[in-house]
Nucleic acid binder design. Structure first.
Length: 459
RNA sequence: GCCGGGGUGCCGGAACGGCCACGGGUGCGGCUGCAGACCGCAUUUAUGUGGGUUCAAAUCCCACCCCCGGCUCCA
């Protein structure tokens, strides 16, 4: 299994012999609003990675944080006339609902910044002792010049960054690039520490929670590419400054989702929320869309691409049904071509999670399966030979739309009724039933061997 | 300026040294009571420009042109 590493700009091999346990930490969301499809892409990518690693026999520990104290949350609380806790609780709940709807595996742990204040304090004390941090009148700052590798992740040179003139001047800092570990605040909300009342800087929570929950060096650290600088750069400075050891063996960054030509961002008011997307299309469509280009590449959100994702999903969905709805016949089909495509798809995934190519191969396998089904050649035996398709389907994290048992009964009854009408050549009423079921996204397929129904995600 | 990603058919977009990717749209036709799924054909002998390497290049090398994102809170 190869993965590309932002830090070394190289592929790094994950070996199930030497890396038996894979510790993954992914930067989660700041909970002040609903999550959008850009967030979804990141978490879908890591979801597929987890599923693949587990399938390959790795033991995976996956941690994803919630930033639950932050100026944006406080501002939002003020807007809504409530407490920051109320806001963060509400959006953590919303995040988990989206996550489940997307069929994302739950993390092993979702640490929250506010639960680690004491650990942050200890961490910062450690940095001060090591000469990497200093106390100033308005807080505690990280001394960037004390860490010689500063800039190694983002390939940024300190002088050039300052020359870029984007850095705010602040008299309380020794050096413009120094960043806050602790910010003093007298007004609520604040936390009591030896540094006085205040709130943590943005980056310290991740360093602290990784150290505490996963140790000094983890296997994979990930997030959106917009976190490379300054967030991950600063995490490296903090964690490696304290431990003297590499923070992560592999840094994975997922490309941003753009809305049309622009970045999707709340400040540009062009976000598409996950919950809205799901209402209109569905979770599998969003997965296909998110994985339809390589995770490191930026992905443009537009109608064409959504439409394409829908069509792709329909093929895969049909193939999945085709293997479930077998015909009671004896059929001997050579499935070697299909198996080959599935093998190629798995190989693609192991090659730096090349999902677009893997999806391509899966699509080809799906088309062939659908063809076989259309010519009534899928017996239980043939389907059994194609178990690998199911494995691939699961690694991608796809899931067919569920139907309640009550609905199943109703559908069966309607099908029987309709087939009676068809026998009597009352096609008008028969078609009315087809139409009714279609409103519930239930598609009927008549074959010489009977009528089948499929609940679909999108019509 | 610095860091990164790109320029492929009507459109979206793969492939990163060799065999028409794939999909969408549109049009015509087949199958079907209808529909879906499926099948056939057309659009499709496409790879920013100029050199080079090679039996073979969209793919490697050199130069140039043009787009996009990030460098500020952000996934």
């Amino acid at each position: 299994m190869l993965l590309s590493d932002t830090l070394s700009r190289n592929y790094i091999k994950l070996d199930s012999e030497t890396d038996k346990e894979v510790k993954i930490y992914v930067c989660g969301v700041t909970v002040y609003d609903y999550s959008h499809v850009g967030h979804a892409r990141v978490f879908i990518v890591f979801d597929v990675l987890r599923r693949l690693l587990q399938k390959k026999g790795f033991k995976v520990t996956y941690v994803q944080n919630f930033t639950d104290i932050d100026d944006k949350i406080i501002n939002r609380a003020r807007e809504l006339g409530t407490s920051y806790k109320d806001v963060s609780e509400r959006f953590i709940k919303a995040y988990l609902e989206d996550s489940d709807a997307l069929n994302l595996l739950r993390a092993d742990l979702y640490p929250r910044a506010t639960e680690y204040i004491q650990d942050m304090e200890d961490f910062i004390k450690g940095l001060i002792n090591k000469g990497h941090a200093y106390i100033s009148s308005d807080g505690v700052y990280y001394d960037v010049n004390s860490f010689k590798d500063y800039g190694k992740l983002s390939k940024i040179k300190k002088e050039e960054l300052i020359a870029g003139a984007r850095i705010e001047a602040n008299e309380n800092k020794k050096y413009p690039l120094d960043f806050a570990l602790w910010k003093k605040y007298e007004e609520e909300p604040y936390f009591e520490t030896v540094f006085g009342k205040g709130r943590p800087g943005w980056h310290i929570e991740c360093s602290t929670m990784i150290r505490k929950n996963l140790g000094e060096t983890i296997n994979i650290h990930g997030g959106g590419e917009d976190l490379i600088f300054p967030h991950h750069e600063n995490e490296i400075a903090q964690s490696e400054g304290l431990s003297g050891k590499p923070l992560a063996k592999i840094w994975m960054h997922v490309g941003l989702v753009k809305f049309g030509k622009e970045k999707m961002s709340k400040s540009l008011h062009n976000v598409v929320y996950i919950k809205d997307f799901l209402k209109k299309y569905g979770p599998n469509t969003l997965r296909v869309f998110s994985l339809s280009s390589h995770y490191r590449a930026q992905l443009e959100f537009n109608e064409e691409k959504i439409k394409e994702a829908i069509e792709s999903w329909k093929s895969i969905e049909d193939a999945e049904y085709s293997l479930m709805q077998t015909f009671n016949i004896s059929s001997d089909v050579d499935v070697a071509d299909i198996i080959r495509e599935i093998d190629l798809a798995f190989k693609d995934l192991e090659n730096d999670l090349d999902t677009p190519s893997a999806l391509n191969h899966m699509l080809r396998a799906s088309k062939t399966i659908n063809k076989l089904w259309a010519s009534l050649k899928i017996s239980a035996e043939v389907s059994g030979k194609l178990k690998a398709f199911q494995d691939l389907f699961d690694v991608f994290g796809f899931k067919l739309t569920e139907t309640s048992s009550k609905d199943r009964e109703m559908i069966q009854e309607l099908i029987i009724k309709r087939n009676k009408l068809r026998q009597d050549k009352d096609f008008k009423n028969a078609d009315a039933i087809r139409k009714t079921l279609l409103d519930y996204k239930v598609k009927l397929i008549d074959t010489p061997l009977g009528t089948f129904w499929r609940k679909v995600e999108v019509l």
